[in-house]
């Protein structure tokens, strides 16, 4: 496949990555942005889209969703190109720049790489169960791609949030038997879904068991029962399929082995430029580590600004670099005028 050429490649479309596209744009550097998720916003969108954030300067209160929307709007004049659902895998040096390839096989050729991967790729949480790998993708799943494989099967849905309840309600009518397994009587899912689930349980259309998942029974990837525990007692729920909905967590994964210095799962940077130990590769936001580092969105913004000042020297080494405020920047004035046409 042909390489996609860019001046800067930003890994991660969370707040730090989005603002990096803006700051790079301000110094005349074009960006492509890749993210493993199907939309921009990172943790802000995945973990707390509706939670108010109180420490964004000039926004006394803003939700993760609003913040994301405004950051996308803010960098839009510089036309960053987004590649979503792309998981960065490898980084290789190539001449003056780098080649980054993704799990789907896309290859990016970039003069500088900015790792803004936050807590890493946001992936479903996996319970610490013995032999879990044996069943994953065969009879244990973290999402429903199509309903058909669940038809006529004994299905256990574990969890108490919206995904768990929505899928329990959706799959119960086609499953041979569906059991919802949750650790307490209360659910954090939408009240309407909880109400519906309770009505279905009362009508005998699905079962609800109080308990926490403790083990898997079966062989060759085929589940026979889900072992659960509640109030000190263990019990088995006969099952062919298990759906686990325990939220999401970050995994740095392959990015940990890109050759720069990593400490405790975070990338060590120089605080003058946010460059890693690999010249031309930068790290900003929650993923970077330096003395006094705070995992704050606003720290990511500051880090993006300083990164851009150094990154531009790799992208345009022959240019004269002077620092310009946005209020007097010709680049942004021109971009925003174009936007008004």
């Amino acid at each position: 496949m042909a390489e996609i050429e860019t001046e800067a490649l930003i890994i991660g479309a969370g707040p730090a990555g989005l603002f990096a596209a803006f700051e790079l744009g301000m110094v005349g550097v074009r960006s492509h942005v890749i993210d493993i998720l199907p939309r921009a916003g990172g943790q802000c969108m995945e973990l707390y889209p509706d939670k108010p954030i109180f420490d964004i300067p000039a926004h006394p209160r803003i939700t993760g969703r609003e913040l994301t929307e405004r950051l996308v709007e803010q960098c839009a004049p510089f036309d960053p190109v987004f590649h979503l659902n792309e998981a960065a895998q490898t980084l290789e040096r190539a001449g003056e720049g780098f080649i980054v390839s993704t799990a789907s096989g896309k290859r990016f050729s970039a003069k500088v790489v900015v790792v803004a991967a936050g807590g890493g790729a946001i992936v479903p949480k996996r319970p610490p169960l013995k032999r879990l790998e044996e069943f994953e993708g065969k009879s244990v799943f973290y999402a429903v791609r199509e309903k058909a494989p669940f038809a006529g099967r004994r299905v256990v849905v574990a969890g108490g949030g919206d995904s768990a309840l929505d899928w329990a309600i959706e799959l119960a009518p086609i499953a041979e038997r569906l059991t919802l397994l949750h650790r307490r009587e209360e659910f954090r899912a939408a009240p309407a879904s909880v109400e519906k689930m309770r009505r279905m349980v009362e009508a005998g259309e699905m079962d609800f068991r109080l308990g926490q998942i403790a083990g898997l029974e079966g062989a060759d990837g085929r589940l026979r029962a889900v072992r659960a525990r509640h109030a000190g007692e263990a019990f088995d729920i006969p099952a062919d399929m298990l759906l686990l909905f325990f939220g999401l967590a970050g995994r740095l994964g392959p990015l940990e082995k890109w050759g720069y210095e990593v400490k405790g799962g975070r990338i060590v940077v120089d605080t003058a430029s946010f460059e890693t130990s690999l010249p031309g590769v930068f790290a900003i936001g929650d993923v970077c580590l330096y003395p006094g580092k705070l995992k704050l969105i606003l720290s990511g913004f500051h880090e993006a600004a300083l990164m851009a000042q150094k990154a531009v020297r790799y992208v345009h080494p022959d240019r004269h670099h002077t620092f310009t405020h946005s209020t007097s920047s010709e680049i942004i004035a021109e971009k925003l005028r174009l936007g008004e046409d």
Binding site: Q43, L47, K51, G250, K295
Partner: peptide
């Protein structure tokens, strides 16, 4: 203090349970 096993993905927003 880099205690292993405390991941704190969300940085204290009570949004991740890690």
């Amino acid at each position: 203090n880099m205690v292993p096993g405390i991941e704190a993905d969300c940085g204290g927003a009570c949004a991740c349970a890690t």
